[in-house]
Design a protein around this nucleic acid. Structure first.
Lengths: 217, 217
DNA sequence: TCATTTTTTGACCAATTGGTCAACTATTTG
DNA sequence: CAAATAGTTGACCAATTGGTCAAAAAATGA
């Protein structure tokens, strides 16, 4: 994923795996885990079905690989956060990073959402072992801000859920938003407008003064 | 659903249809449309499979019936909204009604979400024909409030999406929220806390003063 | 070059699926 | 009570599915 793509052992492997993963992500989102077919994934990737089984032993393993890729994306998307940061700056950055991720990787957000909605049959461990720590660390920082009087008291957990839900709505419910807004697809302008609106509204809602509007990304 | 259940033609029909619809809703949420099986739905309803086909001709028809029931629920859940209303009162009520619906009917919210995430293959018409009008009417009211100087300017559409997403997160992502909060299930307290937090934060975010905290429901 | 490893592929299988049907039973109605 | 209607059910398809396999083709390395 981070290496040159010339002649080199494993190059064919890498390329095929990537196109299979991309195809699988789409099929799993549109059909669900059980509804997606190995044949459909193979067709979308432009390979015979047996070839998909050659690279990913079976369907469950392929699905896991797609989810792993999504979790990696998530971990790479966010800055660290520290009690020394200014609350308004840090929360503004958090909102904008989440908006950027949602618009850049809507299928990843959708598949993650479907997995959670279905009861997280394959991600229960991730939620309990990894994501909980991620949240707890941020909750601790927000609690420190409150204790220092730099942030109006609020439930940090609910604030994080608010930011998550409001931002990923534009990825997960893309079909609905586009239908209601009578659009075919999002524009670059939409990304900025959404980030601006959500940052301003949520920060104001927490009693913070949003940082001055500036062009991000 | 609103009639006595004594001896009466159609009573057996009503009861069986209801238990099939309830079973189907659960199966469709957990397995997706294609992943859910008529056999699994029949088992959950405690009936032989052929009986499910007797009441609902086929799988697509059963799925449609489940979605229809959800749309009916939605339409019954919300008060009308008028430009004469006080913005803070009306938005507070809107948030609380949505929170109540999310906690009362989480499976309905989840199935609707899965349908939208999958590209709304069965609800595209509903979004364009019914829901758009619902939203447009509320957008018009909010725009009037802004024009009258009773509400800080904001994009009404984005405000509605913010309220939708933040509230239904507790239904759709129930598995994740419970895992991160280290709970087994929601309490009655959670419903009130969430409603309170979201109403206060969002209304404040819009420049409104939230109505005094009072016990609702 | 040529032996070795990696990749490709169509044919094939057992299991599961949505759906049908005819026989049977229970309920309602005149 | 008897005819008609409504509901129940197991057995049965044809189609699709995830997965296997062995043989051929390509890529690699000495």
């Amino acid at each position: 994923m981070s290496e040159a793509l010339r002649y080199k052992p494993g190059r064919i492997r890498d390329e095929n795996q990537q196109s299979i993963l991309a195809a699988a992500e789409q099929e799993f989102v549109r059909q669900g885990y059980r509804g997606a077919t190995m044949q459909g994934i193979a067709d979308r990737a432009g390979l015979p079905k047996a070839n998909v089984h050659y690279y990913f032993k079976n369907k469950a393993n392929l699905y896991r690989s797609v989810l792993d890729r999504i979790v990696t994306l998530w971990n790479a998307a966010f800055s660290e956060i520290s009690a020394d940061d200014d609350p308004a700056i840090a929360l503004d950055r958090f909102v904008r990073e989440k908006v950027r991720l949602s618009f850049a990787q809507p299928r990843a957000s959708k598949l993650f959402a479907m997995e959670i909605i279905s009861g997280a049959p394959h991600l229960g461990d991730y939620l309990r072992d990894e994501l909980r720590g991620w949240v707890d660390a941020r909750v601790a920082v927000i609690d420190t801000w409150i204790a220092q009087g730099r942030l109006t008291p609020c439930e940090p957990r609910r604030l994080i859920y608010l930011i998550w839900s409001a931002t990923q709505h534009y990825a997960d419910f893309e079909t609905q938003v586009l239908a209601l807004d009578d659009k075919i697809e999002y524009s670059a302008q939409d990304v900025n407008d959404v980030a601006e609106f959500l940052s301003r509204t949520i920060l104001t809602g927490c009693g913070l003064t949003p940082p001055a509007d500036r062009a991000h990304g």
